[in-house]
């Protein structure tokens, strides 16, 4: 069951990235043709994975195909984004306002999740640890991005510190869960933290939505194109969901599984 849930999670995320990438690259008016690659990949990949769910023989092959391609798209995207002038100026402003080189790693993370899913026994504690570890990676990215983006905004509203604190909590609890997967009290506390992360994500979405709607741009679309990134806060809820899947798998695997290794292999 956790495996199916994780696969559905990957399908939904890859599909949603099509919209996210479209908005992000529309700001750049898709100036270079490679900017279309992640968009079309995000349209095709979920279809292939859905087909794989119904074709048992091709399931693993399709998952690997999409997984490796997703990894390639993520790494290639990061390399393309590295051309941004942040590395020339090395200022926070250039980091925030140029192509975000961390963003394409979402593809890499989803690709790794698929590959790991196929390479590891989904009933093992190792599989669950990997899921939690990848959620931890996501929260680490969230910590950096929410800090950098809101710092660039000068923490205009004190509420902008909330995602920084939330991401730090997410990172810290998941890090300890990865190293101590059999600690029930810790798992319960982490579940609570992840629920809080979901609330933070929803509140962030509402804040960004309200801010964008209040903008004086003449067109509604422009308010979202150039305003606060509307979907970014939902990443908290998304990663919390992935972490909860990992914790669920941890609790299931612990009953009959062999003793876990302290750190994922």
């Amino acid at each position: 069951m956790p495996r199916l849930a994780v696969e559905i999670f990957v399908i939904a995320n890859l599909g949603f990235l099509a919209l996210d990438v479209f908005i992000a690259h529309e700001v750049n008016a898709f100036e270079r043709w490679p900017e279309w690659i992640p968009f079309y990949f995000s349209l095709a990949a979920p279809l292939l994975l859905v087909i794989g769910l119904f074709l048992r023989r091709a399931h693993t092959a399709l998952s690997f195909l999409v997984g490796w391609c997703s990894l390639a798209v993520g790494i290639a995207g990061m390399v393309f984004h590295l051309q941004s002038h942040f590395f020339g100026e090395e200022t926070l402003k250039s980091l925030v306002y140029t192509a975000p080189f961390i963003a394409p790693l979402a593809y890499a993370g989803l690709g790794l999740l698929l590959i790991m899913d196929r390479m590891t026994d989904s009933e093992s504690i190792e599989w669950a640890q990997w899921v939690v570890f990848l959620a931890l990676g996501g929260f680490a990215g969230n910590f950096v991005l929410s800090l950098a983006d809101h710092a660039q905004n000068g923490f205009f509203n004190r509420a902008e510190w909330i995602p920084v604190v939330a991401a730090a909590l997410g990172c810290a609890f998941l890090l300890v869960v990865v190293t101590r997967p059999d600690d029930r009290t810790l798992l319960r506390a982490t579940v609570t933290v992840m629920v809080v992360e979901m609330i933070v994500g929803a509140a962030g979405f509402a804040y960004h939505l309200r801010g964008n709607l209040a903008q004086p741009s003449p067109r509604l679309w422009d308010r979202f194109l150039y305003g606060a990134p509307i979907f970014a806060p939902l990443l908290f809820a998304n990663l919390a969901l992935l972490a909860l899947l990992g914790i669920w798998a941890l609790t299931r695997s612990r009953s009959g599984a062999p003793a876990p290794s302290p750190v994922p292999a």
Partner: peptide
């Protein structure tokens, strides 16, 4: 040990913040 894990997590989070 359980509370120690939570404590460690909280300390790490506090350090990051």
């Amino acid at each position: 040990r359980s509370f120690r894990s939570v404590f460690i997590a909280v300390v790490i989070a506090a350090a990051m913040v």
